[in-house]
Design a binder for these strands. Sequence first.
DNA 1: TCATTTTTTTGAATATTATTCTATTTGAAT
DNA 2: ATTCAAATAGAATAATATTCAAAAAAATGA
Lengths: 158, 158
Amino acid sequence: MNGTDIVLDKTDLSILRLMQENARMTNADLARELEMAPSAVLERVKKLEQKQVIVKYTTRISPVALGQTLLAFIAMKSSEGMGSNNTAKELAKIPEVQEVHHIAGEDCYMVKVRTADSASLMDLMRNKFSKIQSITSTRTTIVLETVKEEQQLVIPEK
Amino acid sequence: MNGTDIVLDKTDLSILRLMQENARMTNADLARELEMAPSAVLERVKKLEQKQVIVKYTTRISPVALGQTLLAFIAMKSSEGMGSNNTAKELAKIPEVQEVHHIAGEDCYMVKVRTADSASLMDLMRNKFSKIQSITSTRTTIVLETVKEEQQLVIPEK
DNA sequence: TCATTTTTTTGAATATTATTCTATTTGAAT
DNA sequence: ATTCAAATAGAATAATATTCAAAAAAATGA
């Protein structure tokens, strides 16, 4: 057992469940829901933030409303050694790149990219990806329709 | 031009940019940042919610803190006709399934799944995916390390 | 251009919430 | 049982959210 592991009790999990569903829920509402004093709830939320259990409060915006209709997965191979992940770090710097995963199997990385349209994706590949020398090949899969897209975790009861 | 398209001005985009970064930013802080009256900002936020530009306020929770250390992408083929997406809908019902995309190319769906460990993934495949008759094949790619994972959109200045 | 209508913003008032702090309680370890 | 640390409650105050009427700004159409 190392010092970094985190103990979450039933109350913490309830807080996380509620906050995951609605990050703008007021502390007062949280307290009512949990039948606790607002001060006690606030204390717990702050600790969850400090412990980095809560990573971020974010607003999900409709990509369509912003005209970002192209989503693609790109499987990449890289020439870098197994230890390093500089390629990944470079990819991560690109704002249109939403995800970078090092994957098992033939390819090295799975990259998720969102742009306005196919032209913008082409731009991105020509002007950004091509600058990363270690990338040796890419295989792009275009998303035709997204049926579900979230990162809600399954939070246990206890 | 149809009635569903949405016009967002510079102020709306600023609101979205700030809220995307921190969903729990107070309306008062927003107002200060934008140099507007709080009531005017509130009005805009409510409209963005109504127009579904703002989809949801969510809290990103560390998967590791909850012991959810396995992430996988599963490329699936389905026997259903091109028109239907029942397979996708069934997949979307499973809470561990975070994403379901209909993709171009040889495979039919790209599915992103998060579970506690490989045993839980096995469980999921045996007890849930196997129930969906239309799935004819799956190709699972395990994520070894996630370097970046977010769905922050690139919001234009204007 | 001007008048009209609609939308947006402001400012003020009130309701609600956030936050702080101290006292109390709880729970765990001895 | 006693001690200690952590968590909670409760009360007080600071800050924020929310509502609404009036004013301003923007859009519309003659």
